[in-house]
């Protein structure tokens, strides 16, 4: 059975293995610094569909289909598909999951939906509820822009703190046993809200949530940066990553060389006009599946803490001048030769 340690951390006893991964991205992500790492790069960000929403749904569907093909799984091998996205009523995930004959759990945790899906799927596998599950998440620049911000063709200037929603999907197969990197533990986040209200500055709003989860994890498990090859956050981007790094230093942890952010890695911000970097539910999942997982698999990384962050706001809460509640969920992923 899972063991709770400290305030918010849980260790799994079962060997919850990441058996296979798949990533799919749009044209700009494909042209970015990590472009070569992704499985599928679509030149048309509508994927031939009539609307951006249908295009995003197709991107996630193709990502999951690619996942099953890569891992040589049939649909009947998978018990459950769990995932989330940024659109109202998580239509992307639901309409994509409709195509698969699997049990379905939709989750919403904004840009940390992927880690929430990983945590719930791992818990379900640990409890013996399911044997094998697909965890996924997705986001799309144009659908997010439409829902949260302005019409795409509106000629407005972005703020110095703005981030670009990634057009990206990522999906993994989790199973009990087998070979591959293992999810050994998790730290479930708490909502942190330090009264930031600027929806165009989510890196700043989310940084303390990441700091809270990382510091709690270190305290709960009596570890520090020295115990991890890397700590990856989800989409803090340039500004948020700087804040997180400074905060951790103030609390006595030196992250130098062992902390990076998926949104910060995804784009060449200056050349690609990507503001401060990437964001979105698909940002962390695609970068994990495309860039981080292969390094775990070939043991270049032995142990990582993966901490996607989410800004849990809506357009309604923003217009009603609420501050932005933020969260960060962490999972520990290991691939050591000397695993017990």
């Amino acid at each position: 059975m899972a063991r709770k340690v400290g305030e918010q951390t849980v260790y799994f006893d079962n060997k919850i293995t990441i058996a296979e991964v798949s990533s799919a991205v749009g044209p700009m992500e494909g042209n970015g610094p990590l472009g070569k790492d992704f499985d599928l790069v679509f030149e048309d960000d509508c994927l031939g569909e009539s609307t951006f929403e249908k295009g995003e749904c197709m991107m996630l569907r193709k990502c999951v289909e690619n996942l099953l093909r890569k891992g040589k799984f049939t649909q009947s091998d998978i018990d459950l598909i769990i995932g989330g996205d940024l659109l109202n009523q998580i239509i992307t995930t639901t309409f994509a999951a409709e195509n698969f004959d699997m049990m379905y759990w939709g989750v919403y945790s904004a840009c940390s939906s992927f880690s929430e899906a990983l945590q719930i799927a791992s818990t379900a596998i640990e409890a013996g509820v399911v044997k094998r599950a697909v965890a996924c998440s997705s986001s799309h620049f144009s659908t997010a822009e439409r829902q949260y911000r302005n019409p795409l063709e509106l000629g407005s200037q972005s703020k110095a703190t703005a981030q670009r929603t990634a057009t990206a999907s990522g999906a993994v197969v989790l199973q009990a046993g087998g070979s591959g990197p293992v999810i050994t533990g998790m730290t479930i986040g708490k909502i942190i809200d330090f009264d930031r209200k600027d929806a165009a500055d989510m890196g700043t709003a989310m940084a303390p949530a990441a700091a809270h989860t990382i510091l709690t994890h270190f305290k709960d498990t009596n570890t520090s940066f020295a115990d991890y090859d890397m700590v990856y956050t989800g989409d803090l981007a340039k500004v948020g990553l700087g804040i997180l790094s400074d905060m951790l230093k103030m609390h006595g942890y030196d992250p130098s060389g062992r902390l990076n952010d998926c949104g910060h890695m995804l784009f060449d911000c200056v050349k690609q006009h990507a503001d401060c970097g990437g964001s979105g539910a698909g940002c962390s999942s695609s970068v994990f599946c495309g860039h981080i997982f292969p390094k775990l698999k070939n043991k270049e990384l032995g142990r990582i803490l993966f901490v996607p962050t989410g800004a849990l706001l809506s357009t309604v809460s923003s217009y009603q001048k609420n501050s932005i509640p933020c969260i960060a969920h962490a999972v520990v992923i290991e691939n050591k030769k000397d695993k017990k």
């Binding site: 703190t161 942190i192 330090f194 700043t204 940084a207 303390p208 700091a211 809270h212 510091l215 500004v239 700087g242 804040i243 997180l244 400074d246 905060m247 103030m250 609390h251």
Partner: peptide, 13 residues
């Protein structure tokens, strides 16, 4: 945590 955040946020803005 909040104190460290406000300091870091001001520095990185």
């Amino acid at each position: 945590l909040r104190e460290s955040f406000e300091k870091a946020a001001a520095k990185n803005a």
